[in-house]
Design a protein around this nucleic acid. Sequence first.
DNA 1: CTCCCGATAT
DNA 2: ATATCAGGAG
Length: 213
Amino acid sequence: MNEKERILEIYRILDENSPANITFLDKKDPFQFLISVILSAQCTDKMVNLVTNELFLKYPTAHDLSVADYNEVCDIIKRTGFYRNKARNIIECSKALDGKDVPSEIDELIKLPGVGRKTANCVIGDIYNRGAVIVDTHFKRVVNRLEIVNEKDPTKIEMLIRSKLEDKYLYRFSMTANLHGRNICHARKPECDKCLLFKLCPFGDGDNQEETK
DNA sequence: CTCCCGATAT
DNA sequence: ATATCAGGAG
C-alpha cells in the first residue's frame, strides 16, 4: 500500500464510522458562527454554546455587537477563557463586519482580529462548503501519530494535508479526524485497543496506551 | 518563544 | 496538582 492509498484508507474508515454531519457549534448564522469559533479557542465547545446563547440573545447582529459595552461582553464570555482578548477581538471584528457579509476567502478572513487560519478554515468549510483543513490540537495530534505528517507547525500541516488529499475530502477529514482525537486518540491516554485505525497506525505499536509519551 | 485564562478531567 | 481544551497575537 502506497502513501496515497494509506491516507485514503484512513479517510474511509473514519468516514464510515463517523456521524453523517459533525457539528460542534450550534450557531448557523455566518456572523454568529464566526464569533462562536473565535470564542472556542482553548475551551470546550459545550461552554461556547452555553455562552453564545446568552451573548447573541443580547447582541444578535454584527451591528449590535459592534456598539456593545466592553465590560458587559467580558462578563458574558468570561467562562470561555482569554476573555479580555476575545472581547476586544469580537467587538473589533463586529465593527469590521457591520453591514457586510462574512468573507468567504481565507486572505480576507485572517485579516479580522482574532481570526487565524484555523478559524478561517472553519468558516470556509462550515459556512461556504469549500475545501478546508482545520488544524486544531486534536487534528494535529492524530495526523502526527498516524504519521500522515511529521510536523508541528499548523500552517505546514494544512498545506501538507492539502497536497495529500483531494479537495472534496478535506473538510470531512478534518471533522472525522477531530472526532477520532476526542473520542479515541486522546492526548493523554489513547484507547488504541478500541481504535479502528490500529493496523494502519505506527503509534499503536508501542505501549503508548498507558502513561508513556 | 511567551502570554492570554477559565472550566473540566485525571 | 497538573494536563488539556474547534488558537491567535506580539
